[in-house]
Design a protein around this nucleic acid. Sequence first.
DNA 1: ATGTAAATTGCAATATTGTGCAAATTTGTA
DNA 2: TACAAATTTGCACAATATTGCAATTTACAT
Lengths: 249, 249
Amino acid sequence: MLKEERFGHILTLIKKKGKANYESLAGELNVSEDTIRRDIESLHHNGLLLKVRGGAISHSKNPLSFQDRTRYQSEEKNIIALKALQLIRQGQTVFMDGGSTICVVASHLPANSKFRLVTNNMALVPIISAFRHIELIVLGGIYDRETAANTGGQTCSEAAKYIADLYLMGTCALQKDLGISAVFQSDGEVKQQMLKNAAKTYALANNAKLNATEHYKVCELKQIKGLITDLPADDSRLDDFRDLGIRLI
Amino acid sequence: MLKEERFGHILTLIKKKGKANYESLAGELNVSEDTIRRDIESLHHNGLLLKVRGGAISHSKNPLSFQDRTRYQSEEKNIIALKALQLIRQGQTVFMDGGSTICVVASHLPANSKFRLVTNNMALVPIISAFRHIELIVLGGIYDRETAANTGGQTCSEAAKYIADLYLMGTCALQKDLGISAVFQSDGEVKQQMLKNAAKTYALANNAKLNATEHYKVCELKQIKGLITDLPADDSRLDDFRDLGIRLI
DNA sequence: ATGTAAATTGCAATATTGTGCAAATTTGTA
DNA sequence: TACAAATTTGCACAATATTGCAATTTACAT
């Protein structure tokens, strides 16, 4: 088999699936992983794909979708997303922060959605691009690869410049007494700023995040307007969060 | 069998299958592989196919050409990109603004590149995500779908907060007397701010942008350090830009 | 026709390039 | 920090290319 045929195969796969790994390519093409590695290096050098640890991805690959599908598009997240959509009204200004749940919300938006979206979540950009009537305002800062969101003081001070009708707060840990907490301080600070500047804040969390804590405290539960989970409103696992004056959706 | 018959046979096969290897051709045509090799060399020389190690492929199947993305990744842009890469040094802080040429530059970066990149170009985010050692700083603002870049006063004032060693300025119009001009004011203003805060600015432009003007003036030619085009440095089309004190690359 | 020069072909020696393997190093993660 | 996985590097071997050369064929003027 000609080397060029391998190149073609690799590029086709990358184009179709957005990514490819050494192991399976080596199997399909019947050569060693070393050879595939060298092929990919050569293709990378020509700017035709991006070499990453373990394989290669296409240029246009949304960074968050690189994580496995189950985590990205679980049924739980779809349920949360559909509930969250009900809150967004035409013409509003909406804050959204990082997290894949937020991306699922965005991908469920109706095609003619018309509002202003302010976000530090870079994974939203390609999604929102498709909605001609959404005005997208990006909050800059230091890009964090893990969350695909911008963070840092710059992000916070930019967020401070906008006043929103609604804030959909991405997945975080919630606990009755200790409130909402985040893994990273940089993320938590952005959340605090958005909370401060939004008329209504709803936290999005799947049931695994209930009764859990992380190490950076964002706010008390009573500071938010409502909590959106994948559970029915009358589920017993939500009992701890009743009578706090927050809406359970 | 006449040489011309062999040529015909080889070309037919290449046209039908897109590829051919010496071994099978030698068998089919009853000549040695050396002869086939020479045939293919001759055809290659006449531009009728592409000689590769082990055989030949058709031009249309050349994985290293950019058929399905000719618009996006033209040969011109590749040339510009490779020249621009030489300017980026480890540890530097680099500004890049919008434009697809800039994206091509990014996709040619070596995998272990290590520097700080400050940009308003959202199309760079997925590309740069793959480079673990590039610190990416996003300049926020109003996202423009057409250019996939953030624009507006916010973007400018954020750009003002960084001081760069190098600024690679995306495609714009250049004219000897009228200098560099941009299509949109919002884009032009970001360019001006980056220019101001960068030690060295290089403009990237394909030959079609030379001796052209747009309607928002960015700066004089003498304000930039150099001009990177797809032309060789001694091309006559660059004559207008000599003796202005700028480097032609 | 026929001899001669030029072109073509196959072959062998040499050079170059591609491939797989293993050790050493780096990287990511618990 | 330490462990496991991935990557880089150097190397030997295999595959393919190139080159020079001699044998053969072709072209063509006489």
